[in-house]
Computed example of a mutant assay.
Amino acid sequence: MAPVDIEDVWDMLGFGRMQLAIFFTCCVLQMYVSNEQLGLSVILVAGAGELKIDNERMGWLIACVFFAQVIFGHYFGYMTDKIGRLKVLFRTLIMTILSSFLSAFMPEYWSFLVLRFIVGVFITGLAVTLLTYLSEFCSLALRPKVHNFVSYSIGVSMIYVPLAALSLMYLNVHVHVWENYEITNWRVLILINLLPGILGVCLLYRLPESPKFYLSINKHEEAMVVLEKCCSVNKGKNVTLASLGVDKVTQSRLRDSQIEHN
């Protein structure tokens, strides 16, 4: 039997429970990305006095974070094609959460800047990969709609961060640690912004790698395993790919394993 194009397989499987789980996970990750990217401006206003951040320092801090995203965007795009979408998502998510968590406890400007630069480096992996990962589980017809709905998570983040900041302002958090160092509102806000990322770690842990990635590196058996799992989750355990007339899958523009890339 001739191989079936993977796009036709997605048309057969539809947008079921597997896609909903991946869609929800990507919404949570997109919200976390926006928390880190856009929430920094709120954090800096609150922490400017404690970290002695004037207008020049604030400009350098914001520029440094976005500069990290610009210079590492190409690298993480390359890595998603080399080691897989899920590995890049999971590893960069862990590193982003860890570096952001540490930045919440930095006592002065320069250590805070270094750690926020590291956040900018790893948040890039999430930003450039999550939509690719989601789209590779959806049919061509659904991809624009799915991407559009995921973008609403940015709006949710724009409500979440200011609302959390407003709540903390009324709480007026001041926990003395040593000498002049205190845990104050803006440090707690960084930790609150981490919550969608922590949820994202739990959700990503149970999701499969993209079958399109497996096909691109000539791992057809692994791709079939993922597709079989999607089939059982969406259609029920009694439905298999074979029962739908699919014994082997392929996709256009498969990578040539003989080509060496530099």
Rank of each mutant, 00 (worst) to 15 (best):
F117R: 02
T132P: 08
V70C: 04
G245H: 09
S99T: 15
L171I: 12
F122V: 04
L20Q: 15
E36H: 02
L131G: 00
K219L: 03
S257R: 07
V33Q: 01
V9L: 04
F67M: 10
R17Y: 12
E221I: 10
W178R: 13
E182Y: 15
Q30K: 08
L29D: 01
E222A: 08
N172L: 09
Q30I: 00
I192L: 08
N262R: 14
D247I: 06
L195H: 03
K82Q: 05
S34T: 09
L171G: 09
A21D: 14
T250L: 06
R253M: 06
L113V: 00
L51F: 00
N172W: 13
Q251Y: 08
V121P: 04
T250V: 12
I71N: 09
V42C: 02
Y32T: 02
F90N: 06
T124N: 01
L61C: 03
T96V: 03
L86N: 13
F137N: 04
V65K: 05
V188S: 05
K212C: 02
K235G: 02
L115Q: 06
D5F: 10
R57L: 00
S99E: 07
M95I: 14
I6V: 14
G197F: 02
K248C: 05
C27E: 01
L203Q: 12
K229N: 13
L40V: 12
S103A: 14
E36S: 10
S243T: 11
I190G: 00
R253W: 11
F112Y: 13
R91E: 03
E222L: 02
M95R: 02
Q37F: 10
L166N: 09
K219M: 08
Q69N: 09
H147W: 04
I192V: 14
L44I: 04
M31G: 05
S34H: 08
R57K: 15
L189E: 08
P208C: 11
M95T: 09
V42N: 12
R206F: 14
V246D: 07
M1R: 15
I62N: 12
T132D: 07
A21P: 08
H261V: 01
L134A: 09
L204P: 05
V225T: 13
F101E: 03
V146I: 14
S167A: 15
S34V: 07
G84R: 08
P196M: 03
T240F: 08
I6G: 05
E260W: 04
P208L: 12
E36K: 02
S167E: 10
M95F: 12
N172F: 11
N185V: 07
F149V: 06
A48C: 12
S103C: 01
N234R: 15
L44F: 05
Y152F: 06
I94Y: 05
V33Y: 01
L142R: 15
P196L: 01
S167D: 09
D8M: 07
G16S: 10
C138W: 07
Y109G: 00
N148D: 01
K212D: 00
M158T: 11
T80D: 02
E260C: 01
Q30E: 06
S153H: 00
A2Y: 15
M95H: 04
A63W: 05
K52L: 10
V173H: 08
